[in-house]
Design a protein around this nucleic acid. Structure first.
Length: 541
DNA sequence: TCTTTCACCTC
DNA sequence: TGAGGTGAAAG
């Protein structure tokens, strides 16, 4: 998707680093080609390990994006993801294969989606273009894989699927879905966190690494803008099968729907024709940043592993579309009271009353299916900073998970600044958000580029970030340079794993750092090593 | 642009 | 069999 980025103007993606497999290297190579020249980072074809997980044991972790080819296809056109009030899944689904994990060590896998830049886009003349400044970022939320925490053996056994993750434009979403703004660009990120003794993270020794696949960047929309994307969705998404078919079939279907006889022009065709001009995102003309990518080279994008430089990961587009360094998503930068949403698979039981009432649905239920492949890039960080003053030690960690939650579901963390320490696997995975937590949602302040995503050493960076109060995962992020194509068996993850304790009632946390995004926040905390001092967020608050 | 509704489809 | 995921279209 490096390409994809381009389309959006995201063009620049961090180079993939830490390529581990030949394949990766290969892919990476291609990606470079595809990437817009503009991105300096790309220029350097040298892999830069983003996540240098030295001591924390995260160094050998590799993550491969499943169905990378498909992602690349979408990216080539300019991926769009529908967001609805009730929440809409992503397609292609985000699935990864993870290798290099210690079989016996427990890890927590989570995702977050950070702003790709601080612009608002519009689709006109068959291409995307910047139309203004981005709306304030929505409260950051983390989607914790329902199988978390689980052993490295578990995660490695099959693809890890985040297909249950849903996107919404409802700022007050009570379900824990990831909240996004329409017509804004986003970059999904995967975080692998080593669970602490309490199956949580946030303790001082927590290590984590972040993986960013540039080809998974997308623009959130309430309705598809580019018919090419619509077609790709219809062709590849099983649930849209009803919209496929020969023209003849479609004509019949349309006629039936419209109560007319032939000929009826298929809607899709109509729409497509109307819009189908060149694809704005086509490598040739990505509106945002023209990256001359070889269109032909299909999908050879690269994923960044952990890149040494966050910037690379989310390479800033020429225009400026710089994805926030992986680490510190722009969003994250703002401080909102962290909100944590937990969902359990159990619909009713675990959900707060308010949630149950909701017509849409209850909690996340996700099957934990892990399917996927992936890339890697680990990053370990310095010991986590001590708990912020005034803050109890990792509540999460402190609070053991004991209660049996039944089936697990993925949980989302919301909050501008979720605190890692607050996150306890047990908690997130199984608990549902409390009403209170859900209620107040603040938007993040406008995106602010992270100044320093320069290539400073992680440590430094972290510090810097910390100071900024916006921790950037990026620093830890590993860009996966390549993806594996193998599709693993879908994992039916254990939906019920162990008993877990519900997280304490969701509560809003005091604001920590203004800039920390939950994800980062978590991340930061997780890696204590990265920054040891007082957590930024704490300071920020 | 966004929301709602619909028929069709997967699971 | 039903819950729920799709894009299209109307408003």
């Amino acid at each position: 998707m490096a390409n994809g980025g381009d389309q959006f103007g995201l063009a620049e993606r961090p180079d993939s680093h830490c390529m581990d497999s030949p394949k990766e290297a290969k892919q990476k190579h291609s990606s470079y080609t595809l990437d817009s020249p503009a991105s300096p980072q790309k220029a350097s074809s040298q892999p830069v390990p983003t996540c240098t997980a030295d001591h924390n044991g995260m160094e050998g972790i590799k993550v491969f994006l499943h169905d990378r080819e498909l992602w690349t296809k979408f990216d080539g056109v300019g991926t769009e993801m529908i967001i609805t009030k009730a929440g809409r899944r992503m397609f292609p689904s985000y699935k990864v294969k993870v290798t290099g994990l210690n079989p016996k060590t427990k890890y927590i896998l989570l995702m977050d989606i950070v702003p790709g830049d601080d612009h608002r886009y519009k689709f006109a003349d068959n291409k995307w273009s910047i139309t203004g400044k981005a709306e304030p970022a929505m409260p950051g939320r983390l989607y914790v894989h329902p199988d978390s925490p689980a052993t490295g053996a578990h995660w490695s056994r099959q693809l890890v699927s985040f297909q249950k993750l849903k996107l919404t434009n409802n700022h007050l979403d009570p379900f824990g879905h990831i909240i996004l703004n329409s017509m804004h660009k986003y970059q999904p990120r995967l975080h692998i966190v080593k669970a602490d003794e309490n199956n949580g993270f946030g303790s001082k020794n927590t290590a984590f690494c972040t993986h960013v696949f540039s080809e998974t960047a997308f623009i959130a929309v309430t309705s598809y803008q580019n018919h090419k994307i619509t077609q790709l969705k219809i062709e590849n998404n099983p649930f849209a099968k009803g919209f496929r078919g020969s023209d003849d079939n479609e004509l019949h279907r349309m006629a039936k729907l419209q109560g007319k006889d032939y000929p009826v022009v298929p809607r899709s065709n109509v729409r497509q024709r109307a819009c189908s001009t060149g694809s704005p995102f086509s490598r040739e003309g990505r509106s945002l940043h023209g990256s001359p990518e070889a269109v032909g080279s299909p999908y050879s994008c690269e994923n960044g592993l952990s890149s040494g430089s966050p910037q690379q990961l989310l390479r800033a587009p020429p225009t400026h579309y710089a994805l926030p360094p992986p680490p510190p998503p722009p969003q994250l930068q703002h401080g909102h009271p962290p909100q944590v949403y937990h969902c359990t698979k159990r619909k009713a039981e675990n959900c707060s009353p308010g949630i149950r009432q909701h017509p849409f649905k209850k909690c996340f239920t996700g099957r934990s299916s892990s399917e996927g492949e992936s890339y890697y890039h680990p990053s370990s960080y310095p010991p986590p900073p001590p708990p912020p003053p005034g803050r109890p030690n990792n509540p999460l960690t402190d609070s053991p998970c004991s209660s049996e939650m039944g089936q697990r579901q993925a949980c989302m963390f919301a909050g501008a600044e979720p605190r890692l320490d607050e996150l306890n696997c047990a908690s997130w995975s199984y608990s549902c958000p409390l009403p209170s937590a859900m209620t107040p949602v603040e938007t993040y302040p406008p995106y602010t580029p992270h100044p320093p995503y320069s290539s400073s050493p992680q440590g430094s960076r972290l510090s810097a970030l910390a100071h900024q109060s916006s921790p950037s995962l990026g620093e830890h992020v590993a860009h996966d340079p390549y993806q594996s194509q193998s599709s693993g068996p879908s994992s039916q993850s254990s939906q019920n794993i162990h008993s877990r304790q519900l997280s304490p009632p969701l509560r809003q946390y005091p604001r920590y750092a203004a800039n920390l995004s939950p994800p980062l926040y978590h991340t930061l905390e997780t890696h204590t090593h990265i920054r040891c001092g007082v957590p930024e967020w704490s300071a920020a608050s």
